[in-house]
Design a protein around this nucleic acid. Structure first.
Length: 253
DNA sequence: GCGACAG
DNA sequence: ATCTTGTCGC
């Protein structure tokens, strides 16, 4: 037992993070909780948000946190917020939420203060939801903290519960014919953790969708499918474009 | 030593 | 995540 109350060792930090994830996981809801989620045409859905951080190569401290809100179904940007922040947690696979979530929550709170009428009814998050080592990725984490419906959208497969980016997986990808085609991601546990989605006709590489909070996988998939002009869903793509632009401008000052 | 590794 | 050049296609 160490006597150092000041500095935590790396294993101690990961252990603390794990227990925090377990605690928050108890509050996660992985099914539809809003009326619009059940409507065939998402009637009542008016605003979709996208959040993420943009990093600077060679800089472990500075990043830009951004939140973008688009109208639905027109997908026009009605709100954007970019804020430079100071990172205070490293990137560890499986613990992405501890690096990014604090700043994303702040962005949502800023919106609540300044333009509450623009609060999105669902949030798209870079990264995974329940498709995660302990079934609680960044999309679940942010969902519980903000109580907003959240969807995890990852561009790479997180190999968990027996899921692998192996030859079989690559074969399944090749069988995807056109935009909207999917195949389920079932782990060894037998549970469907998410779906691989060919998000547009042109992309050969799928995106990986999983439930974050207060939405079902079926609704999440339908929604993502309806806002993909390109491979990356429009709310996240717009967020990325604006975020990178802001990061470059601000880093030069 | 080798493979894995959301962002 | 981020860096880079050209190349191919519409």
């Amino acid at each position: 037992a160490g006597t150092s109350g000041m500095s935590e060792t790396q294993p101690e930090i990961l252990q603390r993070w794990e227990s925090e994830q377990a605690e928050l996981k108890g509050q996660m809801v992985d099914s539809d909780t809003e009326d619009w989620q059940r409507a065939e045409d998402f009637a009542g859905l008016q605003r979709i948000g996208g959040v993420d951080l943009s990093y600077v190569k060679g800089d472990d401290v500075n990043a830009c946190a951004s939140l973008v809100v688009l109208t639905y179904p027109d997908l026009e940007v009605v709100y954007e917020d970019c804020q430079m922040v100071s990172l205070n947690a490293p990137y560890v696979a499986g613990f992405l939420a501890f690096r990014e979530t604090p700043f994303l929550v702040e962005a949502v709170q800023r919106l609540q203060r300044n333009d509450p009428e623009l609060m999105p009814q669902v949030l798209l998050v870079d990264g995974n939801g329940v498709l995660h080592h302990r079934g609680f990725g960044v999309a679940c984490h942010l969902g519980v903290l903000t109580n907003l419906p959240c969807i995890g959208v990852a561009k790479n497969l997180l190999q968990v519960d027996g899921l692998q980016n192996d030859e079989l997986h690559k074969e399944q990808i090749k069988e995807l014919q056109k935009g909207g085609d999917t195949f389920p991601l079932m782990g060894h546990s037998g549970k469907v953790l998410g779906v691989a989605l060919k998000s547009c006709d042109k992309s050969s590489k799928p995106i990986y969708i999983s439930t974050g909070h207060r939405i079902s996988l079926q609704s999440a998939l339908r929604l993502i499918g309806s806002c993909c002009k390109y491979r990356v869903p429009e709310p996240i793509r717009q967020r990325k474009l604006r975020n990178q632009d802001a990061t470059k401008k601000k880093i030069k000052l």
